[in-house]
């Protein structure tokens, strides 16, 4: 049972990394919305790049999630 408890704690700790991804996504979207507000004509390009940026930032959170899932269900 100690191993089980350690697994749960470890999975929880692994998800701390999602903080960075959340902040990153917020910054990306904030910047993109400002840019769109200043130059509405460039909305298409900005959206494309914004989604790419979100995907990169979100990838970090997904890595955390994968690690947590691995800890919980695989090992």
């Amino acid at each position: 049972m100690e191993v089980e408890a350690a697994k749960l704690i470890g999975a929880g700790l692994a998800m701390i990394g999602a903080i960075g991804a959340g902040a990153g996504v917020g910054i990306v979207v904030g910047g993109a919305v400002q840019a769109m507000g200043r130059n509405p004509d460039a909305t298409g390009t900005i959206q494309t790049n914004m989604i790419l940026g979100i995907a990169f930032a979100e990838a970090i959170a997904i890595y955390c999630l994968v690690v947590a899932l691995l800890i919980l269900f695989v090992f």
């Binding site: 990838a59 997904i62 999630l65 899932l69």
Partner: peptide, 10 residues
């Protein structure tokens, strides 16, 4: 690989 897998599995 992990981005897609992680998102869908999660």
């Amino acid at each position: 690989a992990f981005r897609l897998f992680g998102n869908m599995f999660a």
